[in-house]
Computed example of a mutant assay.
Amino acid sequence: MFHLWDSEIPQAVKDTGIPVSIMLWSTDQYKIDRFLQFAQPGYASHAAGYNEVNQVGQGQTSPDRAVQVWYQCLRPLVEKGYTLMGPVTTSAPDGYDWMVQFFNQCGGDCHVDEVPIHWYDVRFEDFQVYINKWAGFGKPLRVTEFACQNFNGGNQPSMDQIWQFTGQAINYLESDNRILSYAPFGFMDDMYNVTPDDRLFAFQSYGLSDLGWNYVKGH
């Protein structure tokens, strides 16, 4: 599945025929207006909202506001044939607390079908613990971003550590039936604030990097 950070599907993505999840990136009004323009019956199979709601500079919003916009923009899509993925948080500890508040306020008719997860850290064992914690919501999971990356002030992992994590992660994600899909970060040239060693595409040769091939073969 393609997980977009936007509500418009690029033509190149449409041409693949792979199911797509569009996203209401934030609760800002201009994002809402754009989302409602594209979120029509048959345009995509899934819709998600919102991106990293507990993070400044991302789709930061309160659980109250998130629930309000959810019922305005996302909940009506169920009747239009969409499967709904809930808001996604960073893997910082306050993300889980945010999601607990969201579910408590959203009520029985919320219709969150699947829960997306973002995770960035360096220890595979911590990745397992995190997934088990989020499985406690009782919903199927989609790991829509993850990488062996240190955002906690320490050194970035070595290439050997990244390869070790990758092998363990693939085996685990492929075997856990609570996880519907997973998408490592990232198949892109600009890795933003993630170490380039996690890059899965080798733009110099216009093909997959060695690490990218490892994910493809593992899958």
Results as ranks from 00 to 15, higher is better:
Val216Ala: 09
Ala12Phe: 06
Asp121Lys: 09
Pro87Gln: 14
Val129Thr: 14
Pro157Lys: 12
Ser62Pro: 00
Val122Arg: 03
Met23Gln: 12
Val53Met: 06
Val78His: 00
Asn51Gln: 06
Leu77Asn: 02
Thr144Cys: 05
Asn104Arg: 15
Asp160His: 05
Gly153Lys: 15
Gln101Trp: 05
Met188Asp: 11
Met99Phe: 12
Glu52Thr: 06
Gln149Val: 12
Asn152Arg: 15
Lys133Trp: 14
Thr90Asp: 08
Ile179Asp: 05
Met159Arg: 15
Asn104Leu: 14
Tyr96Asn: 06
Trp134Pro: 00
Ser45Pro: 00
Ala44Val: 00
Tyr30Pro: 03
Gln37Asp: 13
Gly207Ala: 13
Ser181His: 13
His3Leu: 11
Ala66Glu: 03
Phe103Lys: 05
Lys133Cys: 10
Trp213Cys: 10
Gly153Met: 08
Met159Thr: 15
Pro93Glu: 11
Ile179Gln: 00
Ser7Gln: 07
Cys110Pro: 02
Leu74Lys: 03
Gly207Ser: 15
Pro10Met: 08
Gly49Asp: 02
Gln128Asp: 12
Ile18Leu: 12
Gln11Ile: 10
Val56Gln: 15
Trp163Val: 04
Tyr130Pro: 02
Val20Met: 08
Ile162Asp: 00
Gln164Tyr: 10
Phe203His: 07
Asp121Ala: 13
Val129Leu: 12
Tyr130Ser: 07
Gln60Tyr: 09
Cys73Trp: 00
Trp25Arg: 06
Val194Thr: 12
Asp176Arg: 04
Asp160Lys: 12
Trp25Ile: 03
Asn155Met: 13
His46Glu: 04
Gly212Cys: 07
Tyr192Ser: 14
Tyr120Ala: 03
Asn177Val: 10
Cys106His: 09
Tyr71Ser: 12
Ala202Met: 11
Phe102Pro: 02
Asn132Asp: 14
Asp94Ser: 15
Gly154Pro: 06
Lys133Phe: 12
Phe151Asn: 13
Gly86Met: 08
Asp28Gln: 14
Gln40Ser: 00
Gly138Tyr: 06
Ser209Met: 13
Val129Phe: 13
Pro87Trp: 12
Val13Thr: 11
Glu52Asn: 04
Val129Gly: 15
Tyr71Ala: 09
Ser62Phe: 06
Trp25Pro: 03
Ala44Asp: 02
Glu125Val: 10
Gln29Gly: 10
Asn214Lys: 14
Thr166Ala: 04
Asp113Lys: 08
Gln55Tyr: 07
Pro76Ser: 03
Ile170Cys: 01
Asn54Pro: 02
Ser91Asp: 06
Thr144Met: 09
Gly107Cys: 03
Ala44His: 03
Gly186Arg: 05
Gln101Cys: 11
Trp119Ser: 01
Ile22Met: 01
Pro140Gly: 02
Ser26Ala: 07
Met99Asn: 11
Thr27Gln: 01
Lys14Arg: 15
Gln40Gly: 00
Gly212Asp: 02
Phe137Glu: 02
His3Val: 13
Glu52Tyr: 05
Ala135Val: 13
Leu180Ser: 01
Ala169Ser: 06
Ile32Ala: 09
Ala39Gly: 01
Asp198Ser: 15
Asn104Asp: 15
Cys110Ile: 09
Gly212Met: 01
Phe187Pro: 00
Thr195Ile: 05
